[in-house]
Design a protein around this nucleic acid. Sequence first.
DNA 1: ATCAATATTGCAAAATATTGCAATTAATAT
DNA 2: ATATTAATTGCAATATTTTGCAATATTGAT
Lengths: 249, 249
Amino acid sequence: MLKEERFRVILSQLGQDQKVHLAELSYVLKVSEDTVRRDIKELADQGLLKSVRGGAVPHSPGPHNFKDRVEYGSEQKQIIAGKALSFLKDGQVAIFDGGTSAMLIAQALPKDIHLTVVTNSFPIASILEEHEKVEVLFAGGRLLKNSFVTIGNETIQYFRKFRADICFSGICSIHTDFGVTGPDYEESEVKRAMVESSREIIALSTMEKLGTAEAYYVCPTNQLTTIITDQPDNLDAFEIYKSMGIKMV
Amino acid sequence: MLKEERFRVILSQLGQDQKVHLAELSYVLKVSEDTVRRDIKELADQGLLKSVRGGAVPHSPGPHNFKDRVEYGSEQKQIIAGKALSFLKDGQVAIFDGGTSAMLIAQALPKDIHLTVVTNSFPIASILEEHEKVEVLFAGGRLLKNSFVTIGNETIQYFRKFRADICFSGICSIHTDFGVTGPDYEESEVKRAMVESSREIIALSTMEKLGTAEAYYVCPTNQLTTIITDQPDNLDAFEIYKSMGIKMV
DNA sequence: ATCAATATTGCAAAATATTGCAATTAATAT
DNA sequence: ATATTAATTGCAATATTTTGCAATATTGAT
């Protein structure tokens, strides 16, 4: 079998599956894993795919295909994203935080809405780059490896310059006494800056995060305007937050 | 069997199968593999197929094959990238601008070097995100569609906060009288901020950009420390810039 | 820290290419 | 026709590339 044939198989398989494993290919192509590895390396050098540990993944032209990174967001998060969209109005200035929930909103965003989006998330900025009518303002700062968001004082200062209409803040723990809290110090600091720079705060949370608390404080619960959850039919929590003037959706 | 006849068979077989093997053809055509090889070479010279080890595959159609583009651009710029790397020392703070040249440097960067990189380019930040020992500081600002870099006042202010060791600035026009100039107002402004925030300035340019000028001013020529070109053997230019105290590589 | 999975490297064997050369065939001029 | 030249072909000797293996290093997850 020609090397070129193997290339074709690898690329075609990759087109279907978004991933290929060395062992699989080695079996299918009837060559050693070493050879597959070398093939993958060669294809990677040509920019046709990206070599990763144990196999390869597609590599589309742009800077990075963050869209692939969005693991088929859980069904619940899709629901949340759908609901969130109804809060966005044409012409608004919106802050998007770096979580996967906010990313799903960005992905679900219709192409024809006119917005100014402020974010510290590479994936979100990349997604919105394709939206003609969306102006993207990106918060600088130290790039956090693996999650592709910027953090640190610079990032915070950037957000503080805004008075946005609306802010989508991803999964945090929400507790009536302890307020909104997060598991990471620096990210929580950034989140606070976002929240304090916006008029309306839409918290995106799953039901199980309600009533729990983490180590780092973000803001008081009553600062939230709305809480969007996957199942707003949990009446206990529903009533509690509603009585605080928070809209539950 | 006539040579032309063999050609016809080879091409026809290739049309059906997307591939041909030397051994097969040798058997079918009843000539030695050497002859088949020579046939293939001749057909390849005419651009009718692509000769590969062990046989041939159809010639990839279209002048703008993605793969070709990658390799093509690389050719000269790869040389520049290689040279640029020798200027980077462990532990330095480096500014990378948003051009493709700087991107190639990032791509060619060894994984084990310890650096702090300041950039306004998504692609570069993405590439370096995979480098364990590289801290990426990203300049915020307005995201420029299509080129994935941030620009504007925020971006400029961000760079002004640094005093970097070295700055890699992509292809600009360089003229002894008019200085360094660029084709876009905002990008040139950002470039100036980068240049003024760095001790050492490495300009990455192709030979044809030397001695030309564009509309927007970046900095005086003598502010450059080094000019890296693809062919530093153009002695005329070489001497001129060298006499200004600029290192030509 | 530890372990298993994966990657890298060097190396030798196998596959494939290249080259020079001689034999054959086709082409052309006389 | 025939001699001369040029092109084609197969073969053998010599490079070059590819491949799988084994030893070693690296990585990722726990």
